[in-house]
Computed example of a mutant assay.
Amino acid sequence: MKVRKVTAAATVALALSVTATACGGSNKDDNGSGGGKKITIGIKFDQPGLGLKTPDGYTGFDVDVATYVAKELGYSADDIQWKETPSADRETALERGDVKFIAASYSINDERQKKVDFAGPYLLAHQDLLVRSDDKITKATDLNGKKLCSVTGSTSAQNVKKTIAPKAQLKEYGTYSECIDGLSGGAVDALTTDDSILAGYAAQDQYKGKFKLAGLKLTNENYGIGIKKGDTKLKDKINKALEKMVKDKAWDKAVKDNFGPAHYKNEPAPKIGDIVK
């Protein structure tokens, strides 16, 4: 009986040891204080120049920014688990805790700030139009009676339809890639979203010469890093990381690497908390 008691006790001790190792064996906590845990970051998977999933991994300006921030939080590139976060799912992903933060061409606005917090901004983009290279659309009002495409959950097309071209026929697709296919095939006449996104598509090899940017600055889009509402500690850490990225010129390098081939004329790096209306 004594042997059985010792064996049972040993079994319990072993189980407790395994549980402790599984739950807390890493030195790193969820805020990135160092160690070996993973961090899940939300990005887009289908935006060339910003967030694109390829057979070789993930590329884009948002990816570079997120990787830099994660490193400053204590995570290596190998610690990052990338999660696709379409425009319509970003707030939900943060509220549920599916991701630690989101860097996905996520424009800061009053409505979104009711649900989530933002670090940054880290890029100032502008809403524009992408049209076929032989199209005569030169201004937003030319869209009246035309088929305008954007993605579900994006504010870009709503801005045009409500304030500039109320007679535009709005077509909402699940991804920008679907809009691009529609534009290429003639199902839609224009795609509207941020110029940084449009430039990335226009610069792809398969689309060179097919599309052009209208060159309009319809809105100011302040890209921020989305975090769960109320997580001020993480917000402060990310803001410090973004400031460091600009200071050590890593921000400039990321812009050149990702937007250079598209001849994208970016705005200077914005100051933290400086939201351009």
Rank of each mutant, 00 (worst) to 15 (best):
P166F: 09
I137N: 01
K147Y: 08
S177K: 11
A157M: 09
I164L: 13
D205E: 15
E178K: 13
K212Y: 07
G215F: 03
Q169H: 11
V160A: 07
G186N: 12
T219S: 09
K210F: 00
D195E: 13
K147D: 06
Y223N: 04
S177G: 13
S154R: 04
V160L: 10
S196N: 13
N159V: 14
A203C: 12
I164T: 10
A168S: 12
I197E: 13
P166M: 00
S196V: 09
E178P: 08
T192L: 05
S184T: 14
Q169L: 14
K212P: 00
G182T: 09
G224N: 02
K146H: 06
I197N: 07
K229C: 04
G224A: 05
L148F: 00
Y173W: 10
G224K: 01
G145Y: 01
D195L: 08
I225P: 10
E178R: 11
T141V: 11
Y223D: 07
A187K: 12
G200Q: 09
L143D: 00
L183R: 02
A165T: 07
G153S: 06
K212S: 04
S156E: 06
K161R: 13
A214F: 05
D189Q: 07
S150C: 03
Q206G: 05
T193H: 01
A203Q: 12
D142P: 03
N220Y: 11
K171H: 15
G215Q: 01
K167P: 06
E221Q: 09
G145V: 09
D181L: 13
A202H: 07
D181S: 15
K146W: 06
A157E: 10
R132M: 13
G209I: 07
S196D: 10
L216D: 04
S156K: 00
K229D: 02
G153I: 06
I164D: 04
Q158K: 13
C179P: 10
T163H: 08
T152M: 06
G209D: 02
K167E: 14
K161D: 05
T138P: 00
L198C: 09
K139S: 10
K139W: 04
I164F: 05
Q169N: 14
G185A: 12
G145H: 00
S184Q: 14
T155M: 07
S154H: 01
A190N: 00
K229E: 03
A140R: 01
V151Y: 06
C179T: 05
A157H: 02
N159F: 14
A187H: 12
L198E: 08
L143C: 03
E172N: 11
K162R: 10
D195N: 14
E172G: 10
K217M: 03
N220E: 12
S177E: 11
G186P: 12
K167Q: 12
K228P: 08
Y223R: 02
D205L: 08
S184K: 15
S156Y: 05
Q206W: 03
L183D: 07
T193R: 08
Q158E: 14
A140E: 03
K136H: 13
A168L: 03
S133M: 11
L191P: 07
D135S: 15
L216P: 03
A202P: 03
T152N: 08
E172W: 00
Y223I: 02
I197V: 15
L183P: 07
I197G: 10
D135Y: 08
K167G: 08
K171W: 10
E221V: 07
D142H: 04
I164Q: 04
K217F: 01
Y173M: 14
D205S: 15
D181E: 15
